[in-house]
Amino acid sequence: MRAERASKPARDEILGRVRAALADVEPDREPVAGPRLAEKPRAEVVDLFAERVEDYRAIVERCPAAELASVVAAAVPEGARVVVPDGLSVSVPGAVVDDGTLSAYDLDAIDVVVTEARVGIAETGTIVLDHAAGQGRRAITLVPDRHVCIVRVDQVVADVPDAVELLDPTRPLTWISGPSATSDIELDRVEGVHGPRTLHVIVVG
């Protein structure tokens, strides 16, 4: 408490000076465009996305649309229990379709979730889900140990501002950069604490 009382006069003085300096400045009511990366050919953007996702220790596979079903099937370990969201565009044999009634306890018994994505960001290697059809509710992408995520090449954008333009801010958004990972005070990396231990990204097209 003593430290807070001692710092308040100094803070008030600083804020007073700022207000005085800005007294005759008209606020800029026009939005300011953020910096953008130089435009690159789509193939280069997709290559960068795959490279950055791999940097996070995720598994990345690329395939044509005609081979998607077989690549997804191969990404699911034999005998694994699988959940998929309603509206997924590819069939996953043996998978349970989440209807919103699966509890956290039920999901904890699931090994793999297969979803699609809303957008992929090349510069940061980030995948964004807005949990529309084919992506499912947030819980099914956080509890199972392996997340197989389908990203189509036309969903990959260069940088975060490009992604924000495509996203609806009123929807729930999950931003994924690699498998779930954290570090303790000694910087020992631990994966799977706050989400899937394994992220397997399939880039289609």
Results as ranks from 00 to 15, higher is better:
88 L>T: 08
46 V>W: 00
73 A>T: 12
38 A>K: 13
87 G>Y: 12
83 V>H: 06
57 R>G: 10
18 V>L: 12
74 A>G: 13
93 P>E: 11
61 E>V: 02
46 V>E: 01
148 V>N: 02
37 L>T: 04
149 C>Q: 09
32 V>N: 06
37 L>C: 08
151 V>G: 01
130 D>K: 02
108 D>C: 13
35 P>A: 15
159 D>G: 09
122 A>K: 02
36 R>P: 02
129 L>T: 08
30 E>V: 15
136 G>L: 07
121 I>R: 00
144 P>T: 06
44 E>M: 03
124 T>N: 10
102 L>H: 07
65 A>W: 04
147 H>P: 07
20 A>M: 10
145 D>Y: 11
82 V>A: 04
49 F>Y: 05
37 L>Q: 09
98 D>V: 12
57 R>E: 15
107 L>M: 11
71 V>H: 02
40 K>W: 07
37 L>N: 07
89 S>M: 12
27 P>I: 09
126 T>R: 01
101 T>P: 06
83 V>Q: 04
122 A>C: 05
124 T>V: 01
92 V>H: 03
70 S>L: 10
104 A>R: 13
160 V>F: 11
132 A>N: 12
73 A>V: 07
154 D>G: 06
126 T>S: 12
83 V>G: 04
84 V>M: 09
54 E>D: 10
27 P>A: 12
85 P>W: 11
37 L>M: 13
71 V>D: 07
31 P>H: 05
33 A>S: 15
122 A>V: 03
124 T>L: 14
36 R>G: 05
88 L>P: 05
119 V>I: 11
163 A>G: 05
25 V>H: 10
131 H>V: 12
65 A>M: 08
47 D>M: 00
72 V>K: 03
28 D>P: 04
